[in-house]
């Protein structure tokens, strides 16, 4: 049996009161519930305060470039489908710099879990608007608030009929841990948008602001119903739903590659007889 302590404890670079602490705790809980050992798990992250999270637990880690975590994760999963691959980054990294990769990952339906720490602001670069920042969110970079409409990740994912779309909140740790566990168990691409406060740079969407609005979706929400899911994906403001918004079974991407079915590509030698046959085609 895997225990929480197997995932270790580390000193972090986060501000006291940051939502990241609770998310890290929920991630560890989910990994333990899923009975995954650290060496079976690969975390891929980009750049930002959220992207540092994989450094604060025991696992395999590829901490890459800003916005580019999903392609790295896709490559790693194709090379070794036996790895449990989790992508972890922030709203700026995932919805801003890496937006095109998110669309492609949803379309491919690679079997990996994408955890987005969504605090509606850029923290590491000290407080500029993020793609999810709301109208009127004044910063030094946006003195009159953002000039563009906020990005709605859940609505986009549902519109694309993504395989698994959920929202959690760092203020509901146990619920979040369960959501992540469900996402890990899901075969295909799973997106978990996780609302969290940024105590240093977001004075609008605070812990209390989220706490007041977030509610856990009742059991009668049918995640298989596209219209119901779309409605919930657009619910924002006075009430914000938490839970699995949308779910759709479909073949996972890597199943399409015969080479991948034979196990990790790393273990596969060059087939010399096949190579000779290939060369002969050019004779």
């Amino acid at each position: 049996m895997v225990k929480i302590k197997d995932y270790g404890t580390y000193e972090t670079a986060w501000c006291p009161g940051c939502g990241n602490f609770a998310i890290l705790e929920a991630v560890k809980k989910a990994l333990v519930s899923a009975d995954l050992e650290p060496h079976q798990v690969l975390f891929v992250s980009g750049i930002g305060q959220a992207a540092k999270a994989p450094h604060y637990l025991n696992a395999n880690v590829f901490n890459g470039l800003h916005g580019r975590s999903l392609p790295v994760a896709t490559g790693a999963k194709l090379a070794n489908p036996e790895l449990k691959v989790i992508v972890q980054s922030g709203d700026g990294c995932t919805y801003g710099e890496g937006g095109n990769h998110l669309l492609a990952a949803i379309r491919r339906n690679v079997d990996l879990t994408m955890l987005v720490h969504d605090n509606l602001v850029y923290g590491l670069t000290k407080g500029q608007a993020s793609p999810t920042s709301e109208d009127g969110f004044v910063t030094k970079a946006q003195p009159h608030g953002p000039t563009a409409e906020p990005f709605n990740p859940l609505a986009v994912a549902v519109a694309m009929r993504a395989s698994f779309v959920a929202r959690g909140f760092s203020g509901e740790v146990d619920h979040l841990a369960e959501l992540i566990e469900q996402a890990l168990a899901w075969r295909g691409f799973s997106l978990v948008d996780i609302l969290q406060p940024c105590v240093s740079f977001n004075k609008v969407n605070t812990f209390a602001w989220f706490k007041q609005r977030c509610y856990i979706l009742p059991a009668d929400h049918d995640a298989g119903d596209f219209d119901a899911a779309m409605k919930k994906a657009y619910e924002w403001g006075a009430r914000i739903p938490l839970g699995v918004i949308y779910r759709r079974e479909s073949d996972s991407f890597e199943a399409q590659f015969p080479a991948v079915a034979a196990g990790p590509l790393a273990g596969q030698e060059v087939d010399r007889a096949a190579l000779a046959t290939v060369f002969n085609k050019y004779a």
Partner: peptide, 24 residues
């Protein structure tokens, strides 16, 4: 036994390559 995948752009292509290479 090769995997060849058309990426969404060249940025994705090289990052996918690095992820796969990291995994062997």
């Amino acid at each position: 036994g090769l995997v060849v995948e058309q990426a969404e752009d060249e940025i994705a292509a090289i990052n996918m390559a690095l992820g796969a290479s990291y995994a062997g």
